[in-house]
Design a protein around this nucleic acid. Structure first.
Length: 879
RNA sequence: GGGCGCGUAGCUCAGUGGGAGAGCACUCGCCUUACAAGCGAGGGGUCGUAGGUUCGAAACCUACCGCGCCCA
């Protein structure tokens, strides 16, 4: 706002100390600290109130808040605050996970800067170093959560590596082990040659990459067979060639052997149904130790597995290729084969699907190794059934299909990781080959030759226990008794497989079949204003802290919530955030106006019989809004709830109610007093309704308006059906129509907004709004007709209302004719559409009665409008 | 290759059998004693295409075109 150009005299009415603009920076931190120290967010398990609980999807301890977190937290905070106001004992439990690979990587990078590796420190010292890192630099996100306004119970913050949660991990491991649901086996797993650890299937991202397809002739002469491969280097580990059993081209070769080039080994040609005869030549090389499909073929045909690379994907087969990594070995081997004339065809680039480590993007190397697995069969079945039989509902329900597709086809889960940071597998191996799984209260075996398994567990293993490990399980705590199962899990649909399915499996298993949450409310991904995925490299990523800094936490939250349709992606842009900021400022100024005009929440709300239709109307609208918003928030329709409130606040309250109230508020009588009470009530209720989404500005305004302690602990509004007033709503709709028509005329005629026009209004009584004539005159800036009144234009308003205006001689006839022509065209179209329906016997015969009646009514209205418009056109002076 | 979803105003999206809507953008007029982060008015859409069901389809069914996501 430009002070220099503001020539108005300052308003001296009381504003409760509110400045002319909302400054979020002055409010947010102070308010948040007050809330926390008042204990509003601390959950009491001994409370008599019904429980409502959410556990936070634990962010990564190395991470900071990105805009996806901001969305998710806005949703969770909105639900928590909504339920708290509704009288629930709310527990929103915060915490972080230890992010095995990511955290270890961070600390290893620090060490690398000093030319050190974790092996130089040793396991114990390294883990100590990680804890030290966490204490110094971990958990930046918790400070950012405070900035956003998260109403979490900080006294219950948890970390997956805490003692209690670690105990939960060991307990469930032991239980699953004893039940035969955890086993150790040599399997082909996804291996990251950079992180040097196994990965589970879902930690691998597949992309279509450019590679090469090389066709190689194995054997010579009549026995020759050509195989096509994208990974020529793995041929050193081939132990067979496979063809489809029905493939006529190769019938004579099945059961025979062929010499594997470069090695001199002879390998069998086997028949396997899983070979696709249409791919390449229909013959595939089989490398069981380096390809999951080949591993299966190998198992079916009892083929040996030959591991030809070490953990860094460097060739270990003695000979000319030894010591080359997989990308050096590939061209070297192709060249060697070409020299022998064995390369039949080469295709470059050849697009094919390649798996990458989700953490570091290195191409995954399938690797045969001894790992720990969870047998997911029975667990996944239970996880699917809990949704199938309705104990857990997925919102929106369409996304349940995706969940089923995953849990019903789940492979065993590789849970061991070759890391040091994490929960170490509680299994000891004895000198005589003993294997002992140790429970949390048991002493591990000691003595000569006993050693613990070196590996740690997948981070998701501990995250899967989160809904109950954070509440003290395996102890039977008061908190568990009160707050488990949790009420709702809020997370992105992209995390359905990673985390939701795992919590379901573990929750149902550990908690005697009781589900970890009743509802899974899924949100989408935050995208930019053009629906593009946000990414740092593309440069369209939004830093929520930056927005909070510049526009306020409320504006940031409102922007996100307003885009959050269930399960759908959420586009946002800075312009929209500005709009949200403007909305907060609008509320600020509406409250400021109310305070300047004596709005109050003291005393009983006046009985409807005592109120003007303007007051009755806004109270009636308020009841609809209370009901709608309550329903929308309860069904996770955050975008709709925001929209409902935005339009009620801006259109109904600010644009109409406040403007309509100004004349009476300028007076001093009993009617003004009643309106002050109504205005106070409407704002009080509106601020409560908005508080879950925009907590800071509503708190600031509500406390000034009401003088009460905090809207955080105020009661959620309840719709009062007795205040719904259809008559007042119809009256106000008619009033708005008259005012809008006059404004349209004025705008079309180029009349200055301040210019008053004489006018005669007739027919207001038709719709019962004759008492509002002064209001209409005020809003439309119409003066009473003077003695020498002479109408120069006539406005025909639907409902039989006529406004005759005296524009003092000058009227833009062409503009007026254009306006009337447009109205006539619209009315004619309407009439024609209605007549077409009514002339149709099938319509009259088959359509419901009330639909027919409605169409008849519309036709009558259109015809009446047409008559008036025609008269007005006729009355216009000819050009 | 399999599965799921989406095509509605310039952009982003609501609308799921009976008058095509919102926000932003755009045009015009305004500092009007709460607010220029504002106020008033306006323009703009063969609802992807083609069939079908129905008295009536943006909505339901089928096919096709285009886009996206997940899985392999």
């Amino acid at each position: 706002m430009s002070e220099a150009t503001d020539t108005r005299t300052p308003d001296t009415r009381p504003t409760g100390g509110l400045s002319a603009q909302y400054q979020p920076g002055e409010v947010e931190q102070r308010r948040y600290e007050q809330w926390v120290s008042a204990g509003y967010f601390t959950a009491d398990p001994a409370s008599d109130k019904p429980p409502f609980s959410i556990v936070i999807p634990p962010p990564n301890v190395t991470g900071s808040m990105h805009v996806g977190h901001a969305l998710e937290h806005t949703i969770m905070d909105t639900l928590s605050r909504f339920k708290r106001m509704q009288g629930f004992e709310v527990l929103w439990l915060p915490g972080m996970d230890h992010a095995g690979i990511a955290t270890q990587n961070v600390v290893e990078r620090q060490l690398a800067a000093q030319q050190l590796s974790r092996h130089d420190l040793g396991r114990e010292a390294f883990v100590e170093k990680v804890w030290q890192w966490k204490a110094e630099s971990g958990g930046a996100i918790t400070g950012q959560m405070r900035r956003l306004g998260d109403s979490v119970d900080w006294s219950r913050e948890r970390f997956t590596m805490d003692e209690g949660l670690s105990k939960a991990v060991q307990t469930i491991f032991k239980r699953l082990y004893d039940d035969g649901l955890i086993y150790r086996a040599e399997r082909i797993i996804n291996w990251c040659p950079r992180c040097l650890t196994a990965l589970s299937d879902i930690e691998v991202e597949h992309t279509d990459d450019d590679g090469e397809l090389v066709s190689i002739r194995y054997g010579d002469g009549a026995d020759a067979i050509v195989v096509a491969t994208t990974r020529a280097e793995t041929m050193l580990g081939d132990t067979a060639v496979a063809v489809h059993p029905d493939d006529e081209r190769y019938q004579h070769l099945i059961g025979t052997e062929v010499e594997l080039p470069l090695t001199g080994r002879r390998i069998p040609i086997v028949a396997d149904e899983h070979v696709d005869p249409a791919f390449g030549t229909g013959a595939v090389k089989v490398t069981p130790a380096h390809d999951p499909n080949d591993f299966e073929i190998g198992r079916r045909h009892n083929l040996p597995s030959m591991t030809i690379m070490d953990e860094r994907a460097v060739v270990t087969v003695p000979g000319p290729f030894e010591g080359l990594d997989r990308y050096e070995a590939r061209p070297a081997i192709v060249a060697a084969l070409r020299e022998q004339g064995r390369i039949v065809a080469e295709k470059r680039p050849y697009q094919h699907s390649v798996g990458h480590c989700s953490r570091c993007k290195t191409t995954v190397e399938p690797r045969l190794s001894l790992q720990w697995f969870v047998n997911t069969g029975p667990l996944a079945k239970a996880a699917g059934d809990a949704v199938r039989d309705g104990r857990v509902s997925i919102e929106p329900p369409e996304l349940a299909k995706r969940y089923f597709a995953w849990v019903d086809n789940m492979h065993d889960w590789c849970i061991s990781r070759q890391l040091w940071w994490g929960h170490r597998i509680p299994v000891w191996y004895g000198p005589a080959g003993e294997v002992v799984c140790v429970g949390p209260d048991e002493e591990p075996p000691s003595g000569e030759g006993w050693r613990q398994d070196e590996d740690v567990l997948d981070t998701w293993f501990s995250s899967g226990l989160w809904p109950f490990s954070t509440m003290g399980w395996p102890q039977q705590t008061e908190t568990l008794a009160k707050f488990y199962p949790t009420s709702v899990l809020v997370t992105g649909y992209d995390i359905l497989f990673f985390w939701v399915a795992r919590m379901m499996m573990f929750g149902l298993y550990a908690m005697d079949g009781v589900q970890p949450f009743d509802v899974v409310a899924l949100h989408g991904l935050v995208r930019d204003a053009h629906g593009k995925k946000m990414s740092k490299s593309f440069g369209n990523a939004v830093d929520p802290l930056d927005w909070i800094e510049r526009y306020g936490a409320d504006a940031t939250r409102f922007t996100l919530a307003r885009g959050a349709n269930p399960g759908s992606d959420v586009p946002i842009s800075e312009e929209w955030c500005q709009g949200s900021r403007n909305f907060c400022n609008k509320l600020w100024n509406a409250t400021r106006f109310a305070l300047m005009n004596g709005a109050t929440v003291e005393g009983e709300l006046p009985a409807s019989a005592e109120l003007s239709s303007v007051d009755k109307w806004i109270l009636s609208r308020l009841q609809h809004v209370i009901a709608e918003v309550g329903e929308q928030l309860a069904t996770y329709e955050f975008a709709k709830a925001c929209d409902t409130l935005y339009h009620f606040a801006w259109d109904d309250v600010c644009d109409w109610y406040v403007e309509l109230s100004k004349p009476v508020l300028a007076t001093d009588g009993a009617e003004a007093a009643r309106s002050r009470r109504v205005l106070g009530h409407v704002l009080d209720q509106l601020l409560r309704l908005l508080h879950p989404v925009i907590p800071f500005v509503t708190e600031e305004l509500w406390t000034v308006l009401t003088g009460a302690e905090s809207v955080v602990v105020a009661a959620w509004p309840v719709a009062d059906a007795a205040r719904i007033d259809d008559v007042a709503e119809e009256e106000l709709a008619a009033l708005q129509k008259v005012v809008t028509e006059v404004r349209r005329f004025r705008s079309d005629q180029g009349l200055r907004p301040g210019q008053r026009v004489s006018a005669a209004l007739t027919g207001l009584g038709n719709v019962g709004i004759d008492v509002h004539e002064p209001l209409i005159r005020a809003l439309a800036r119409l003066d009473a007709p003077s003695a020498e009144f002479a109408a120069t234009a006539t406005l025909a308003v639907t409902g039989g209302i006529t406004v005759d205006l005296d524009t003092r001689g000058t009227i833009d006839v062409a503009a007026e004719r254009a306006r009337l022509d447009k109205d006539r065209a619209a009315a004619e179209k309407e009439a024609a559409q209605c007549r077409a329906k009514l002339d149709n016997d099938a319509f009259i015969g088959k359509a419901p009665e009330q639909v027919v009646a409605k169409i008849k009514d519309r036709l009558a209205t259109a015809e009446a409008d047409l008559a008036r418009i025609a008269a007005a056109l006729k009355a216009l002076p000819s050009a």
